[in-house]
């Protein structure tokens, strides 16, 4: 009767899966419902017409979802590229090269992880305001890069530590300059690690609200997260369909990325946490 003892366990697992999956499934069904169905049918009812795409059309046309997505991509990609380039270079410099003041710099980066984003928000706002950068996406890109750097540097430093020093020593003997060593040896050896870090940073930046909210003062600059926040307001409280559709686009976009790369995402995120 071994299987009888295993029943409570299965119940727990089933409950768990229902708790995680059902809200998402409910979200998906909601995005196909008409306003009438929302008001009159019970909430767990399935949509009457699975091919009703009106809500999606509405979200993209009236809701400007397309612009929000474009802004998100325009802010995320450059910020991600800058973070990775600077982060990898700094990680290399801190771990492989030997120079004075290395410890202090490492400590400064560590402090950067601890300080909450709110602390630097106001001065940055003033700077951007005075240099006339407000009204573009640049404040977002610069701030994301700065905030993403400490964690990237730390993770990269750990990865470089795993590379045997002898390799770099041999390269020096062979006459490779420090830049050559970075590009031909250091960079290729941690390529996989870079990919993981980039993925983690991507989710951080893509999902950020605080910074996007602070530095986007015009409607056509909003990222997808800020846009979503204002979605209910734009349509009034009653129009549930388009809101559901917009949330769906947002949720299932990240879902697809996650489905393909889930092992890496899990590993990267938790690795970052232990070090942070």
């Amino acid at each position: 009767m071994r299987w009888v003892r295993r029943i409570p366990g299965w119940v727990v697992v089933t409950l768990l899966l229902v708790a995680v999956v059902y809200p998402l499934f409910w979200l998906l069904t909601g995005s196909f419902k008409t306003q009438n169905e929302f008001l009159n049918n019970p909430t767990w009812a399935l949509p009457e017409d699975w091919t009703n795409l009106d809500n999606y059309v509405e979200a993209f046309t009236t809701g400007n979802l397309g612009i929000y997505i474009k802004n998100s991509i325009l802010a995320t990609v450059p910020a991600l590229a800058l973070t990775i380039i600077f982060g990898v270079a700094a990680g290399f410099a801190l771990e492989v090269m030997v120079w004075k003041g290395r410890g202090t710099v490492l400590l400064l980066f560590l402090a950067g992880i601890m300080v909450p984003g709110q602390m630097i928000l106001l001065p940055l706002f003033t700077i951007y305001f005075q240099t006339g950068l407000t009204g573009t996406l640049w404040p977002l890109i610069i701030t994301y890069t700065a905030i993403g750097l400490p964690l990237t540097v730390f993770m990269m430093a750990t990865f470089f530590r795993a590379v045997p020093r002898e390799i770099f020593e041999a390269a020096t003997l062979d006459g490779a300059s420090i830049y050559r060593q970075f590009w031909s040896i250091g960079f290729p050896m941690v390529k996989n690690a870079i990919f993981t870090v980039a993925l983690v940073q991507f989710f951080f930046i893509w999902n950020d609200l605080l910074i996007a909210l602070t530095f986007t003062n015009r409607d056509d600059l909003r990222t997808i997260q800020v846009g979503l926040l204002n979605f209910t307001g734009q349509f009034g409280q009653v129009q549930y369909g388009p809101t559901f559709a917009a949330v769906c686009v947002n949720v299932f976009g990240t879902l697809i990325i996650y489905l393909f790369l889930n092992q890496r995402v899990m590993k990267g995120m938790t690795a970052g946490a232990v070090k942070g």
């Binding site: 997808i224 979503l228 949330v247 949720v251 990325i257 996650y258 995402v265």
Partner: peptide
């Protein structure tokens, strides 16, 4: 999975 979802959503 919920970890990677945007908070706003």
């Amino acid at each position: 999975f919920p970890v990677v979802l945007p908070t706003v959503a």
